[in-house]
Design a protein around this nucleic acid. Structure first.
Length: 599
RNA sequence: GCGGGUGUAGCUCAGUUGGUUAGAGUAUCGGCCUGUCACGCCGAGGGUCGCGGGUUCGAGUCCCGUCACUCGCGCCA
């Protein structure tokens, strides 16, 4: 017989009754009745009940062992009597009567229990991640993740993509996020950088003629995390295609993305391939107040600025007069909501850091609230008619500079949708957001900068760069969104050196800068580069959506905490002095903050 | 860097208006128990109320500071 097991803890059922078997696993739960004792023996595959009584030499050993100890049980498969069958357990028709036990590894008292799905503090979960990962939900999430990744690989291969691994030690590039740097031993004062994405490499692969590339690629960015953004490192489905328009990228990837979602959506509806809405960025910002709209939310924001150019409501008139806008979010069927509901929304907006959220109530056709009073019932009725709102629909107002109003309206749309229970949780609504602006005006630096990816091709190419105002140029750039999350981002790349130089000139970088910062790629484009484009999809976020997790740590094996510390391995840590010397480094400790009064 | 939330036993939490010795469940340890599957029953141990300072006759409770965890803003092409 095998040293450790003849079966897994999920394999035995009625037909095995009478067999002598050997099982190994963790003691999930122990139920000690004195003369008889039950163990739920758990392994990766499932749970089997072990039973021992006074006829078994295992009884005395099992009584002393703590949960999560690892044991090997030799025993006999017995049918359970009708009253003792456990219908909730796949192996519930049988149990294994223990004849002998080998303790492989006894467990100490646990800092956090494995059995049960209680919540535990994040720092303890991370420090004892190996225990946390034994727990049912997290274990299942990670298994789903590996299946999703395998499924992605199959679909990408079937679509004619080839997987390549690109370097991890590479050069720092000045665009985008903060880099992680790796000091060079051989070159004093020089550093490698970990890739923020394999962006330049995959473009070089296209120049090298590989036509369709993909990779489940680790990416590294030294930025502060969010619930949907891991600190430090994350994985992307990175892909690139030659000789394609952006429409072909979408048409190629819709079946892959819809296919993966459908395969793991557990029957929940998914936007079918070929039917992903394509929403221009400007439209998304107006209608949803964000570039990553949750399309499960039926509320649509409208611009009603023209109604308030001359209004009895002085505040809006003043805002509009100053070049601002007024946006509205409907709150359908709120005639039975109390004043508190509307005031709470206003308080919510203030808490979020906005000036406030105005509102109009409407109950059986009667308008209420200060905005309606000052604006007048006739003009309110006119506004409602234009918006197609009914006699029991409330209306929220976000006013201010266009960008601020859009942001508030977008946040309010989400909040109202949630408060009114308008969002169908059991759906995956996918859509492309397209036509992103190529440049944006940075209020802080008072200059024009790339709004997203500087490697994107501007729509209209060189001619547009030379003839149009930078802020009017869109890029062949697109995001894929799902339920309010950005799950992929991509573009058709700028493969023409002269267009690149011009594009960078507009943000104040010279040809020399381009050659220095993107030397490899710039040089490659001098020797025959195919038009190409692609995208990168956040694997972590896709898994998070599919398993219904609210946080990326629930789908990540060994995540770091919010301060980018690995509490299990103890990273980052201080290196030995000798290591620093070898790397030509010296640490300059940060100065303690001066005590108040000394400054 | 900034703002919100949380912090009481290993863990999940309660703790009134500032008032006697800070409680419960669970886990742990001991005892009992032959059909449980979140087994049950009896008992015990377990606390710098995150930390520091202040107000007060008296602080888990009020004030100030700070730390940890977390969510968000900035940031993330």
């Amino acid at each position: 017989m095998h040293l450790y097991r003849s079966h897994t803890c999920a394999q035995l059922s009625a037909p095995n009754v009478g067999e002598s078997v050997r099982l190994s696993g963790w003691m999930h739960r122990k139920r000690d009745h004195g003369g008889v004792l039950f163990i739920d023996l758990r392994d990766h595959y499932g749970i089997t009940q072990i039973v021992a009584d006074e006829d078994s030499p295992a009884l005395a050993v099992l009584e002393k062992l703590r949960p999560e100890s690892v044991v090997t049980i030799d025993g006999e498969v017995k049918a359970r009597t009708a009253e003792t069958v456990n219908k909730d357990l796949p192996t519930g028709e049988i149990e294994v009567f223990a004849r002998a036990i080998t303790v492989q590894s006894a467990a100490e008292e646990l800092p956090m229990p494995v059995a049960g799905e209680q919540e535990y503090p994040e720092d303890i979960r991370l420090k004892y991640r190996f225990l946390d990962l034994r727990r049912e939900t997290l274990h299942a999430n990670l298994m789903t993740r590996t299946k999703i990744v395998a499924d992605i690989r199959e679909r990408m291969s079937a679509a004619g993509f080839n997987e390549f691994s690109t370097p991890i030690l590479t050069a720092s590039s000045p665009e985008g996020a903060r880099d992680f740097l790796v000091p060079s031993r051989l070159h004093a004062g020089h550093f490698y950088a970990l890739p923020q994405a394999p962006q330049q490499y995959k473009q070089l692969l296209m120049v090298a003629g590989f036509d369709r590339y993909f990779q489940i690629a680790p990416c590294f960015r030294d930025e502060d995390p969010r619930a949907d953004r891991l600190p430090g490192e994350f994985y992307q489905l990175d892909l690139e295609m030659s000789f394609v328009t952006q429409e072909e990228v979408w048409d190629t990837m819709e079946p892959v993305m819809a296919g993966v979602f459908e395969a793991f959506a557990d029957g929940k509806p998914v936007t079918p391939a070929g039917e992903f809405p394509r929403i221009p960025y400007a439209e998304a910002m107006l209608k949803y107040g964000t570039d990553k709209p949750d399309l499960r939310n039926p509320l649509i924001i409208s611009d009603v600025t023209s109604h308030f150019e001359k209004s009895g409501f002085g505040l809006f008139e003043k805002i509009v007069g100053g070049g601002g806008v007024v946006r509205v979010i409907p709150a359908p069927g709120t005639h039975e909501k109390s004043r508190k509901f509307f005031d709470d929304m206003n308080n919510w907006a203030r808490k979020e850091g906005y000036a406030g959220l105005g509102y109009v109530t409407r109950k059986g056709g009667e308008f209420g609230g200060p905005i309606a009073k000052n604006h007048g019932p006739d003009r309110m009725a006119e506004l409602y008619a234009e918006l197609g709102l009914g006699e029991n629909d409330g209306l929220f107002f976000a006013a201010g500079k266009a960008a601020d109003a859009a942001k508030l309206a977008g946040a309010a749309r989400i909040e109202i949708g949630e408060q009114l229970g308008l969002i169908d949780e059991d759906r995956f609504d996918l859509a492309w957001i397209i036509d992103f602006p190529f440049y944006e005006y940075d209020e802080d630096t008072k200059k024009v900068d790339f709004s997203h990816n500087p490697f994107s091709m501007p729509q209209g190419e060189l001619e547009a760069l030379e003839s149009k105002s930078p802020l009017e140029i869109n890029a062949y750039q697109y995001d894929l969104v799902c339920n309010g999350y950005e799950i992929a981002s991509g573009s058709i790349r700028n493969h023409k050196p002269e267009t690149m130089v011009k594009a960078f000139e507009i943000v104040g970088l010279s040809k020399d800068d381009v050659e220095r910062e993107f030397g490899g790629m710039y040089r490659a484009f001098q020797y025959g580069a195919p038009p190409h484009g692609g995208m990168a999809a956040g694997v972590d976020r896709i898994v998070m959506l599919l398993v219904g997790a609210k946080n990326l740590r629930e789908v990540t094996l060994f995540p770091m905490n919010q301060k980018a510390e690995d509490l299990l391995m103890g990273a980052p840590s201080r290196p030995e002095l000798a290591q620093l010397r070898e790397l030509h480094l010296r640490v300059v400790e940060p100065q303690p903050r001066p005590a108040s009064g000394e400054a």
